[in-house]
Design a protein around this nucleic acid. Structure first.
Lengths: 321, 321
DNA sequence: TACTTGAGTGTATCAAGATTCGTCAATTGC
DNA sequence: GCAATTGACGAATCTTGATACACTCAAGTA
């Protein structure tokens, strides 16, 4: 019985022999009448095909003390702190944060909820990358983009895919905002919204959010984004700063105390407003790294966040300063 | 308290570097100023401490055809078939079945439910071994033992631990039956039940089962069990067989068509009755291997099961015969 | 104080698994 | 119908990770 027709079945079989039963590759090879090399390749393929998953669980309450302190200090309902391998490697931090967030999300009951998602956030993007598919599908579960497209076309494509994939994994329906995130004028903004039925539907859903995975950003233009086009210009960022902005939550600017900074910039953005964020327990932020510290602190002070997933260094600074 | 979390933190860090970031052990060692050997050992420890988990997912619908056929034939709501590595190795089959069941259970919504558990079942025991802890704790979730102690004292200890651990992993409260599973007379049985408050509570909960993980057994005394004491004697099994029994569900005998065999044996058992099994959708059986074939078929024919997790060979026989 | 014990670590070595390379068969293109 | 290409495979080889052994250090014990 050498050639099992179905390759996936064969991979599963080998994977189970290797991982579950702990049989050595050579023995598996001998047992199935194939070479050790092939067993090795099959195992790689199984991993590739996500038949085999290795996850590193973040033990509960590993940083219990600091997490509790943060909860108390900022009135948060949940805090998760992950150890950053290298505090300077922001990409690495985002990956770790995303992974942690994936574990937390997968333990949550999201079925039937309306979930706001921020597809341009790098940490949320890596969340999607590590999320495991859930079996429970529910059409009532809605994944709503909370901001229109930002950045260059390539990034927009990634964003769409990210939202789609997130919806697939959670088992819900995605609602896209098919419009730029930042327009040149309030009039164009209105026109864009009325233009597309999908977008209108998504915008409407923003009033009914149960959970929001917000993006916290600085008042500058980070790497993959570009000024102008469907994003704020350098001048607009400068203007926000001159009004006291130290960061933004889905492009809504806040000052160091977390107080919203109202300006005409607000009327240029197609996306969730701070007032639309879910009332309590559903405001998630996955953000860390040195550059975002000011913004995160402001978001916490304004109580725009009640579940924070961040790195050790940021957590410590949030307690110290 | 911080004393014991320190090594765990280090293990987690190393595990993340290795598995999530894919860094080689030597590089990790160089990075952290330790030897490669220590990295290797830390990773082993992390695996031991369940910080690292590797699971082999059963791809959905790998055996779609046979599963659907079985569903249709016996009116089952769910069927999962796993490939047995060696049809003769019943211990191995049980491990595989348990692993599969763990994956299926973890995808289910069990919070707040009353779940009947059969702690002496080997496949359910291995289910517990591979189940991943769920984050959602709920005191409303109850794990009820569906049968008193059977077998030698050593086995009883394992059973208790198994139930306890299952409850921990699911995030619920365990209700134990602290009494023998089989008594010498109906009078002694009554006395045992009235004796212990915990046991009474568990027995009462058996009327409110939402989900039952039943054990399907043969009409003989399998390896770890011993006749007499708190288990049926050889004579009692013979008597059941002479009445037409081909198997039993939690020690309630059924004939080849699945029809319950009523006898005075019923009044000797402290455990769930067939009538107490949840109405629909909640009757799980994890059973396979050649020896149990007759019993499984009988249980299916009597519609005592609506979700079956079994091995390929049993599945095929169930369709053929 | 001196001795014993045991856990934890690094070095050197060995085994296990990944990779390279040549072969062969199936498929594609001309 | 015949190269050419692609992909799968196994044997040999190389790399990576596991382990045996020796050493250190701390804590207990005579």
């Amino acid at each position: 019985m050498a050639a099992d027709s179905e390759p996936r079945r064969f991979m599963t079989k080998v994977a189970r022999m290797y991982y579950t039963h702990g049989i050595r590759q050579i023995e598996i090879a001998a047992n199935l009448g194939i070479s050790q090399a092939r067993v090795s390749r099959l195992l790689q393929a199984a991993e590739q095909a996500k038949i085999v998953r290795t996850i590193v669980v973040i033990p509960e309450g590993l940083h219990a003390e600091i997490e509790e302190d943060l909860q108390g200090r900022y009135g948060l309902s949940q805090v998760h702190v992950v150890e950053a391998l290298d505090p300077n490697d922001e990409a690495g931090i985002n990956r770790d944060l995303g992974e942690a967030a994936a574990l937390i999300l997968s333990a949550m009951q999201l079925s039937g909820k309306t979930i706001g998602f921020t597809s341009w956030s790098r940490s949320l993007r890596s969340l999607v990358a590590t999320l495991e598919p859930s079996k429970k599908k529910s059409d009532a579960t809605r994944i709503v983009e909370m901001l229109g497209d930002v950045g260059p076309p390539q990034l927009q494509h990634d964003s769409t895919r990210s939202t789609q994939r997130f919806a697939d994994l959670i088992g819900g329906t995605p609602l896209f905002i098919r419009a730029p995130g930042v327009l040149s004028s309030a009039e164009v903004r209105e026109a864009m919204i009325s233009y597309d039925a999908h977008t209108r539907e998504a915008i409407a859903a923003l009033d009914e959010l149960d959970v929001a995975l917000v993006g916290i950003g600085t008042c500058s233009i980070d790497a993959p984004l570009e000024p102008g086009g469907n994003f704020f210009t350098v001048e607009q960022f400068e203007m926000a700063k001159s009004l006291g902005a130290v960061g933004q939550i889905n492009l809504r600017f806040i000052d160091a105390e977390g107080i919203p900074i109202e300006s005409e910039l607000d009327s240029l953005v197609i996306g969730v407003t701070l007032a639309q964020l879910p009332a309590k327990g559903g405001r998630f932020a996955v953000a860390g790294g040195r550059s975002k510290y000011e913004a995160v602190r402001a978001a916490l002070r304004g109580h725009w966040i009640d579940t924070l997933i961040t790195d050790m260094e940021t957590a410590e600074r949030l307690l110290r300063e």
